[in-house]
Design a protein around this nucleic acid. Structure first.
Lengths: 249, 249
DNA sequence: AACAAATTTGCAAATTTTTGCGGTTTTTTG
DNA sequence: CAAAAAACCGCAAAAATTTGCAAATTTGTT
């Protein structure tokens, strides 16, 4: 294995877990702990990670995260993202929205895939730029301060011109009867347009959001093709959704 | 086997796998490791691959990329940004490009100002979102991995539809005779359009970049309205620009 | 076709970089 | 304070690169 390859695997590991242990890496990469230590030192020298005793931390974990609220329910979101990236295939046109779950998906896109991503989220776009083989297109427009995505007519217009194979959206509210609901009018408008545009709609959300209702409706559950949570599809919590026509994984 | 034939096979291999080992190639192509090494060196010199010890990596393999989080010449850039934000007035439509100097400007926009910003840079946009009173509009399009800005027809088209009061751009090369020059064709195209669109063009650059020339021309110095560096306008280094018609502060 | 010039290739020796390991020092933790 | 874990140090083996050079190959010209 090339040194740079090894170091990029370390970086990737740090991006995913926000931390690494020297002992883990040594085992996983099949090199001595000293080598891992030297690699981490080098990455720290070039300001790419933060070296700490026993391992290293993601820079974003300490420095950047003044926006991103310390990624709530990170573990669950990783489980969801792992399921989500399974759906990706070479050559796809993929629409991906904002939110921390989608950001996690962007992090976990397998490096070898060649995909064209469309996004409206600044942080998702930044993450996707790290991917070696994929193109990213940002659908521009007025930026929403709260959601940190572009909203308004400009985006809606663009969304009417594309036909993505698949679309990943998150949500703050989903209920078997009330459907998908949000609290921000502009965000709802964009999500509606995203759902309208896409061949297959995937909703990714932690189980906590199940059975919660917000003020503005995005769509019915039946308009979602696939629902991804961190739970087993047969878990009781998901029972209300078993007969809504949506596939659950 | 012809040399060019061999080198194109190497390139293909790199494009498929994102990396190659000299030992592998030597065996597969039935030439000595030295020959492969020289080939890779040549491909690296012409900027087609990234040479590393033991093999080479695809250029797009950004994992080992050095996106400098720590800002080079930060002190100087703050001086420049302080001068730049003096130009901002309530109600302006301001176009602002990427680069660390412009990011610094975005940081230092006085909180009370009500401004509408247009930008093509992800990091600048993120910074501008922190501003309490200003709106930010992102001009979307295909994102350039290296420059981390949107490029291509989509952006150029949008730029033709707006008429900002003022535009802040940075550069890697400025020379009194050669003009403003850059090394990335896509970036040059966007900057040209930005200059074309704007009422007043402000170039912000650290003195180190003065009198350096890159490969592709953006415009003549005379097309710039205002040049901002960290130096006193009467400093010797700026002498070549005194009679170019550009105002210096 | 022949031949000289220029380029390319392979080889071996010298050099540099990387890596693992044992011993020592420093830091953490109870 | 003492035991354990991690980091540091120096060294030697292994791997990769550089360099000089001669042989082989390609190119251009008559």
């Amino acid at each position: 294995m090339l040194k740079e390859e090894r170091m990029s695997m370390i970086l990737r590991e740090i991006n995913i877990h926000n931390k690494v242990l020297i002992s883990d890496l040594s085992q996983k990469l099949d090199v001595s702990e000293d080598t891992v230590r030297r690699d981490l030192q080098e990455l720290a020298n070039s300001n790419q990670v933060i070296k700490v005793r026993g391992g290293a931390l993601s820079k974003s974990y300490s420095a950047y995260s003044y926006h991103e609220q310390d990624i709530y329910a990170h573990r669950e979101k990783i489980i969801i993202a792992r399921k989500a990236v399974e759906l990706l295939k070479d050559g796809m046109l993929v629409l991906i929205s904002g939110g921390s779950t989608n950001l996690e998906i962007a992090r976990l896109v397998p490096p070898h895939l060649k995909i064209t991503f469309l996004t409206v989220s600044l942080s998702t776009a930044m993450q996707l730029l790290e991917h070696p083989n994929s193109d990213t297109i940002f659908l521009g427009g007025q930026l929403s301060k709260s959601a940190r995505i572009s909203v308004g007519g400009e985006v809606i217009g663009k969304l009417a011109e594309v036909r993505p194979d698949i679309c990943f959206i998150g949500t703050n509210g989903i209920d078997a009867i009330a459907g998908i609901t949000e609290s921000d009018w502009e965000v709802v408008t964009v999500k509606k347009a995203m759902i309208q545009a896409s061949g297959k709609v995937v909703l990714c959300t932690i189980a906590e959001k199940l059975n919660s209702i917000q003020k503005i409706k995005v769509c019915d559950v039946s308009q979602i093709d696939l629902l991804i949570t961190e739970l087993n599809p047969l878990h009781d919590t998901l029972a209300p959704y078993w007969n809504t026509g949506v596939q659950i994984i």
